[in-house]
Amino acid sequence: MTGRLAGKRCVITGAASGLGAATVALFVAEGATVLAVDRDPVEARPGVVALAADVTDIDAARDAVAEFGPVDALVAYAAVSFGGKLHETTRDRWAQVLDVSLMGTVTWIEAVLPGMRACGGSIVTVGSQIALAGGAGNAAYVAAKGAVMALTRNLAVDYAEEGVRVNCIAPGAIETPMLRRSFARAPDPVTKEAASRGRHAMKRFGRPEEVAKAALFLASDEASFTTGSVLAVEGGWLAL
């Protein structure tokens, strides 16, 4: 078996579509065996073990990891977003966003961490460029992603001496179903989409495989001296 992840066992949450699906495909192509986790169906195929589960279910996560075997890398994509300013966001919506986007990440880190503390490994969390630069009308999502980034730095320090690397990807607007849903919520979706595209210095949206390649780097041994970092993959959003 060859590839940058040859022989490694990796877990990817939010694996059914978008960034997660692209990363599953790339990791398998690079030699990994992937536990692909999502509440929506994921196709089991060579190199992919599919798990339909709520990412906040710690018992399901622990049981899956125990059966799958020691995990070399975790990429935690699972998140939800409903939009809305703070005064427009109900407590139920806050709870949903924080539960999936933050606590879903915590749940799977908690599940893989015992094995990684013993053998080392790479954890890749997923923030957002709008948690670094600010963004209008998405208070709960921005707060959750900001918390994920802060948690990343904390974990990187806490577990560095045990061989666990923890880094975060901050994507810009990436062509995914979640992005399309965000435009559909706007009063004028066409204008909203044009404004978002123009906000990137590259004047386009990212592709899922471009984020997957960043995850591949951080998960692989090529990033052996990288921890506590936020890797922005955002087409120049932060430069404007």
Rank of each mutant, 00 (worst) to 15 (best):
L155T: 08
E110H: 13
P114M: 11
T125D: 01
G14M: 01
D54P: 09
G3W: 11
A194C: 01
V42K: 13
P189K: 09
A173P: 14
Y159F: 14
D63R: 13
A53I: 03
A140G: 05
P114N: 01
R39G: 02
G83C: 10
S122K: 02
F205V: 01
A143L: 10
V142L: 12
A170I: 00
G127R: 05
A215F: 09
A6V: 07
D92A: 15
A118L: 08
V166Q: 02
G115H: 11
D54V: 04
P189F: 09
K85F: 14
V34R: 06
E234L: 01
G115K: 07
N167E: 03
C119T: 15
R165N: 07
S122N: 08
K192C: 09
A118P: 01
K8P: 00
E175C: 00
G127K: 10
A76W: 03
E110L: 04
V65H: 04
V48Y: 05
K8S: 00
A79L: 05
S17V: 10
Y141K: 01
I169L: 14
E234D: 14
D188W: 03
G172D: 11
T2W: 11
Q129I: 15
I130Q: 12
R62M: 07
V211L: 11
S196L: 14
F27D: 00
V97I: 12
D92S: 14
L86R: 12
W94R: 07
G120F: 06
R4K: 14
P41L: 09
T227P: 07
A194S: 14
Y77T: 13
T90Y: 05
P189M: 08
A184Y: 07
A143V: 09
G7R: 08
V148A: 03
G84N: 12
G206W: 05
G83N: 02
N167S: 14
E30K: 05
A76K: 02
G104R: 13
T125G: 12
H200P: 11
A6H: 12
V148L: 05
T89R: 11
A111H: 10
P46F: 08
S122D: 02
T56P: 05
A212E: 04
R185E: 06
R180I: 01
E210G: 05
L98R: 09
G127C: 06
V164G: 00
L240R: 15
V71G: 10
K213F: 08
K85C: 08
A184C: 07
D57E: 11
G236V: 04
L5K: 13
E222M: 06
P177S: 06
R207P: 03
A239E: 08
D54R: 06
M116N: 05
V75W: 07
M103V: 06
A52P: 01
S81G: 13
I58Q: 14
A32P: 10
S128P: 11
V11F: 03
V142K: 10
K85A: 15
T23D: 00
E234W: 07
S101M: 09
M202D: 01
E175Y: 13
I58C: 06
T105A: 15
A194L: 14
A44D: 06
I123T: 13
D221K: 00
T90N: 00
A36Y: 05
T226Q: 11
G31I: 00
L102C: 04
R45H: 03
R117K: 15
G135V: 04
D57W: 13
A78K: 10
V233I: 09
I169W: 09
R185K: 06
